[in-house]
């Protein structure tokens, strides 16, 4: 059945596996190092040492120290935990919300569809960051506000994707078969519709995660997200901004950490997305 498409598929499989494996490896190393950061590095990420400020990178301080004498490598590693967790949760929450509401809108149609999709329209009408900053302005800066804001700003795209897919799936004969077997709406939606629409949402979620991590660091940079002295890359870049000419490492090295995680997530997400796409095509 697929003998014609076999060769190029195999070639691209190697290429995509390379991306997937290297992305996963980088993420695994970062995560592992971050979880064991307190064992790897003898310095505390928060405790200040005012006699050791603004040291350039050296063997004892790999990434140098900041204006309070804290080891930047320790802070970057500790921050990875938090940033990856926020990135993950701020994709999972909108995903769940979008999947539920989009599924209901597409499956039941009618009034539910109108109400949900007009709400989606309202949410999409706001630019992403304006929306996020607006919500944080109401709830106050901090982790909780950021979770809520990123969830509210992110769910509408998932709802759109899911609804469109459900509209196609619900016309297929296996849904009719499920109805003729007497299954209730809940069972049909959960067991027969949703499993057949998740693939495109996961593919989107993989790219969304990069965006969310960048937003997290941006918000913290602006002072709206994670608050100092908690180590977080955006917070660290903000703190180093004043020293960019005299102590380049304070801004650059946390910045590079963001870039590295972004690239790793992209590679990993692309690989996963391609595997899922091929799986759903077969």
């Amino acid at each position: 059945m697929t003998s014609l498409a076999h060769k190029p598929a195999q070639q691209s499989r190697l290429a995509q596996m390379g991306g997937l494996v290297s992305g996963a490896a980088i993420l695994a190393i970062i995560l592992l190092a971050s979880l064991m950061a307190s064992h790897l590095i003898p310095y505390d990420p928060i405790e200040q040492n005012l006699r050791n400020t603004l040291q350039p990178p050296s063997l004892s301080h790999l990434f140098g120290t900041d204006n309070f004498g804290r080891d930047i490598f320790a802070r970057v590693l500790h921050a990875a935990k938090l940033d990856l967790m926020i990135g993950f949760l701020c994709v999972v929450f909108p995903w769940i919300l979008g999947l539920t509401l989009g599924g209901i809108a597409g499956y039941f149609g009618g009034l539910a569809d109108t109400l949900i999709m007009r709400t989606v329209d309202t949410f999409t009408a706001f630019p992403f960051l304006i929306m996020v900053i607006g919500v944080i302005a109401i709830l106050g800066p901090g982790l909780f506000g950021m979770y809520v804001a990123l969830t509210l700003a992110g769910w509408s795209i998932y709802a759109r994707i899911v609804r469109a897919e459900v509209l196609v799936i619900k016309k297929s004969e296996y849904i009719l078969a499920a109805r003729s077997l007497g299954y209730g709406h809940g069972r049909i939606l959960v067991r027969h519709v949703i499993p057949n629409v998740v693939t495109p949402t996961i593919i989107f979620a993989m790219t969304d995660m990069v965006l969310v991590i960048l937003s997290t660091t941006s918000l913290s940079f602006l002072g709206l997200g994670v608050q100092p002295p908690t180590p977080e890359w955006g917070v660290m870049i903000a703190e180093g901004r004043g020293f960019i000419l005299s102590a380049w490492w304070m801004v650059t090295l946390p910045g590079l950490a963001v870039v590295l995680v972004g690239v790793a997530l992209s590679l990993f997400g692309d690989g996963i997305a391609r595997i899922l796409r091929e799986g759903s095509q077969a």
Binding site: Y174, A178, S180, G182
Partner: peptide, 17 residues
């Protein structure tokens, strides 16, 4: 519905993949 069932036209869309 236990008493009556349907066989569908398109076997490719009649089964949950």
């Amino acid at each position: 519905r236990r008493q009556m069932q349907m066989i569908f036209q398109d076997p490719y869309s009649a089964l949950n993949p």
